[in-house]
Nucleic acid binder design. Structure first.
Lengths: 185, 185, 185, 185
DNA sequence: CTCTAATCGAGACGGTACGTCGCGTCTTACG
DNA sequence: CGTAAGACGCGACGTACCGTCTCGATTAGAG
């Protein structure tokens, strides 16, 4: 139960239950803002006993973290090179294409009540990666640069997914490049 | 209760109660993240009856909005000219000086659980002011510009108040100017 | 305020207010069971300020007692001779005719939530009158006789007003005479 | 929760909780008039969570009905033959002996605020049993006979338990026979 | 016919109980 | 004999009503 993820449980039932909760959670997240989700609703949707939930997660926050973590890892993996590459615009486009492919998932994560937590996790993970890409010549403190850049990227993506889903990824990529990337590199 | 603020109720008791709730709320916000506040705690601190709270506000959200609204108005009044003035850096410094003067209040509003709501309100109000300063020549959609700029300003201020309170306002002003203002003007 | 009734207040306003409350109370009692009445409802109906109610009565119970007391006195005045007279049947008919004349009032008092209190008051007042009509030859203890007879009279009247309002007073009088009067004299 | 009783839940905890509430309720009923009982008091006495009460009953009324129903059934089973038997006096004595055996319980039910409800339930149940014992030759309408007889029995019992507990059951039986039974058969 | 006190309306307030909801724990019955 | 179902303790919520209180604004009835 403790760390919930990884530990690659050998028990098939455990994997089954987790998948069910995982999927039910994501499905509900699309219909309902995160703060209004209840354990009961998730377990009902997952056709799982109420108490069972707590055998796998400490609470909805952890389930969110669990679900979001891997998505965040992947998004982050797309985001980091943006700040490292010579051709940052191209990287931005790759990033936006990636998000466009998981449109509804990321809209749930970025435009609802889940988003402060997602942002926090995203920023925290980004921080861990920063030492690897020291950029001492900049006049901006690294910790601020990380916060600013990641927040800006997420803000722009959130704006896209919520208010402007009809615009092409390439356009968004240009905005990200202009507003979030250029100022810090 | 209706609109909660204004309408300047002529009854002294009402003003007294509201002030008490207002102050108690702010005092608790410094010690406790917003999401963990309870009506009971606020009314206890305000030395007010529990039910009385609901005679004035529909819930803690509305109290937060009520408390934050006027602060936001003032901060916004400092922020807008930043994007309009010839000497934007000087305006940024004025903004940072203003925030430094209300250090602990704004730290509560920007670094705790209240901040998503504050940001939302801030962005919404900023949106209402944007038409007044049309900037058609920009290649960034106005609604994105508003979201990006206000979010960036708040992010930078939040970083300052939470992680770097020892830095002088002028330095922060420079960051704001570089990261949030320049890219959109 | 204290004893509420009598004291023949010289102030017209007081009399006016009391009458208004009195009437509003009776009017509501017809529509609503006593236990569901609220002070607010009574004062609203009486077009009177909420606090004004408490300037005249300690609570709804007292208002009920106040309203009921005089009615009970009158009913009791009709009831007592029933047990004293040679021709008890005729007295019973007088009693029933009297009740028939205040049909809706007594239905409210006897068939709703007010009835336990009315009964209690009725029995208590009857008790006070019993010494005057000692009937030592009976095998039934006087205190029981009073309780039984008054309760029985009220029960029969309540049954009439609630379930059999179409029957003539004379028929009810016969029942009262047979069931409540004869057994105790 | 639904029908509250019966359906013999197989879960021990449920039975345990209901018994606790049941007992606590009866214990409090001895000390306190029914209308002044609170759910809080009952649950406190039952050492049970407040909300748990509502998982079993809709309110105190239902709990009273629940508790009283079985007692009423038993008392009624003793009462009915009184009106059917050749030797009604002997039946009355059986009835009084039975009540004497549950003295404190019935005093709580009949002499406090619970009694109007108990009476109502008692009368209602008696009504359901009446068709079985048609007595067409009587000149008293059956529905009145039921109301009168059951009310009279309860009134006499209540008088006994409240004001004359020292009298022997046989004496009370005589009163019941004289006042409540004879007039209707 | 005025002046002065009492009464009035309005409704805020502290308090208490209600009935509901969700959480996280822990017992139970069942497979 | 372990696991899924769900009862439980807890505590916050928002509502309703009570009875008290403080305000002016009237309005009687005594001088």
């Amino acid at each position: 139960m403790q760390s919930a993820r990884r530990l690659a449980s050998t028990d098939l039932r455990i994997a089954r239950t987790r998948t069910a909760l995982h999927d039910a959670f994501l499905a509900l997240l699309v219909e309902t803002p995160f703060e209004q989700l209840t354990v009961k609703a998730v377990t009902a949707r997952a056709k799982t006993g109420y108490a069972t939930f707590f055998r796998h997660y400490h609470g909805l926050d952890q389930l969110l973290a669990d679900v979001a973590a891997e998505e965040i890892d992947q998004l982050l993996a797309q985001t980091i090179p943006v700040f490292d590459t010579a051709d940052s615009l191209r990287s931005c486009e790759a990033l936006c294409d990636y998000v466009a492919g998981k449109h509804s998932l990321w809209r749930s994560l970025l435009t609802g009540g889940a988003w402060p937590r997602v942002r926090e996790e995203f920023v925290a993970k980004a921080h861990d990666l920063v030492p690897a890409m020291e950029r001492p010549e900049s006049r901006i403190p690294p910790s601020l640069a990380v916060v600013f850049a990641t927040s800006a990227v997420l803000d722009i993506l959130a704006w896209w997914l919520r208010d402007a889903s009809d615009r092409p990824p390439s356009e968004i990529a240009a905005y990200i490049n202009t507003l979030a990337v250029s100022p810090v590199v």
